[in-house]
Nucleic acid binder design. Structure first.
Lengths: 242, 242
DNA sequence: GCAAAAGTGTTCGGGCTACACCCATGA
DNA sequence: TCATGGGTGTAGCCCGAACACTTTTGC
């Protein structure tokens, strides 16, 4: 949160980082201890930072993502600018806290990004202690306007998922069709018929290719593993199906 | 373009204003004369301005729209932030010109908005002399990164039009189904079958209501006029069709 | 052998596409 | 009366929705 001569005074980026794990869609939030009226409040915020003079806003977001997760080249997309005059002052405790922590400018306009990460790739050693993956239904009362930013990010993800191959940014490299279906169901918040879902995958998504490999160590019929063929996807996107 | 103490130093808004007129989709651009190497160049830019300390970025955009068109409450949407380090320096002539005209900060990050206006409502007296409505196919070589901003705006409009009743922001209050179809065709850059188009309107868009009124003064069978019932649209959006 | 999830076909109805002619008006 | 765009119906196909049982594994 600290600013210095190297950052633009009025602009920041905030990241809503989504991950998929244990059949849940989760978001990364950071704990902060806020002193207010003699008490210590535990609050959570989205990872964010100010924009440096020598970087684009996308580079700011990449930097935040790398700092938080230890992973580079994470998928991300800017989705909205938040510029309410009172966005840092909605709650007095939050405002006093940030002011004590080096806020020099009253006006900070922030660019919201959402990012998608394969939690399977994440080495837990990289996870910073104060950061926490929380199921999307359990994200409440974030600091400043971060609750709004989070909700808008989720809305945008729900829209974008329809037309872009975003699920593969969240799934491990090898996944089962049930994992794929569950992820769609979580994001779109609705259930699908298993047989219809699989038919659609086979007919319309030939870029989801079956591997010669199966699940191991499960106490039921092991599922075939699939992977996403990006080259094939791009070809179909350019030339259409058939 | 001038900045002063009342504006944030590094943030601006730029507006891509679309209008529909004479069966063409047009954009408002402003002429600027740029002196470079002893010559006067005629260049065009998108209307834009810096953000004031006492306004949100949306209010900045509204202010730009009102200044340019004389109309308030125009539909608009922010669609992307442009923050390339060299966005003002892509062309030397542009950069020297803006520097002479009071650029104090090298870094200006801009928020792109697109706006939709009913040209039928526009009193021509309000149109500023240097502003010009140009068919989208004739927009070329805008100043700075404005060509990119324009192209991204058009892409976003093409996406948004599928799920939102945006065409009615461009059409006059009373319109014919042919006008409606032509506008869709222009924006999506494809042709539709007249009978199928009309059937779809009648079945799926009951919020497009026929008036008791017809075209006048045309030398062919006069078309029935329709209008958009926003109340009905909202109801259907909430409760679904039927 | 039992619990648990994987995997697999068919039927039906609604929606999309393709397509050609008559009508009302102004000049 | 002619030129111009307005307005209308049908048939075939494809796609999405609904629905239940057998298979394979670990324990």
């Amino acid at each position: 949160m600290m600013k210095n001569k190297e950052t633009l005074p009025n602009i920041s980026a905030d990241c809503v980082i989504f991950g998929y794990e244990e059949d849940e869609l989760k978001v990364l939030i950071r704990r902060e201890f806020i002193e207010y009226q003699g008490k210590i409040l535990e609050k959570y915020k989205l990872p964010g930072n100010h924009v440096r003079y020598d970087e684009t806003i996308e580079e700011t977001a990449s930097r935040i993502l790398a700092e938080q997760t230890g992973v580079e080249n994470i998928f991300m997309k800017q989705f909205k600018v938040f510029s309410d005059l009172d966005r840092l002052k909605r709650c007095e405790a939050d405002y006093l806290w940030i002011k004590r922590n080096g806020l020099k400018e009253e006006r900070v306009i922030t660019v919201g990004f959402y990012a998608l990460i394969k939690l399977s790739d994440l080495k837990s050693t990289h996870l910073i202690e104060v950061a926490k993956w929380v199921p999307i239904n359990h994200v409440h009362n974030l600091i400043f306007d971060h609750q709004t930013i989070f909700e808008e990010a989720l809305k945008q993800l729900q829209l974008d998922i329809e037309n872009h191959p975003l699920v593969f940014e969240l799934l491990p490299k090898k996944f089962t069709l049930t994992q794929l279906q569950t992820l769609y169901e979580l994001i779109q918040n609705q259930r699908f018929d298993k047989r219809n879902f699989r038919r659609k995958v086979i007919l319309n998504m030939p870029y989801i290719v079956a591997l010669e490999e199966k699940q191991e160590g499960v106490c039921h019929k092991p599922a075939i593993l699939y992977s996403f063929d990006k080259r094939c996807y791009n070809k179909i996107k350019r030339e259409g199906l058939q």
